[in-house]
Design a protein around this nucleic acid. Sequence first.
DNA 1: AGCGTGACGAGTA
DNA 2: ATACTCGCCACGC
Length: 121
Amino acid sequence: MSEQSLPADALPEYAERVLEVADLIPPGRVMTYGDVAEWLEEGGPRQVGRVMALYGGAVPWWRVVRADGVLLQGHELEALGHYRSEGTPLREAGRATEGHLPRVDMKRARWDGGERAEHHT
DNA sequence: AGCGTGACGAGTA
DNA sequence: ATACTCGCCACGC
């Protein structure tokens, strides 16, 4: 019989790949949705976002972020708690961003998924 | 089949 | 800093 739908206990292959990458991101670092898509060489940021929305609960979802470093809407405080606890570089709110939550400092926190030789500042 | 929507991204004003 | 446009692609109506 032709199986066009997936078994209930399995995730789509693409989703599994996304979650696998998310799981590889070290504490204190992040990857953007677009980064994950590029790493997989499949899909795009919106597809990665869809997977995270549906299945992200199974992995450290707070390590996959938007390219501008804005905290995930609806889970800002929870994400912030993780960032503070694992030392993720943050850009604290300044005068111009008064009333806003901090954002991830993408410059420092972005992880390219393969850099083994790193240099500090 | 068209259209709106989304845990996106880059560019422009 | 903001707002808006366009490109992207899978889903649901």
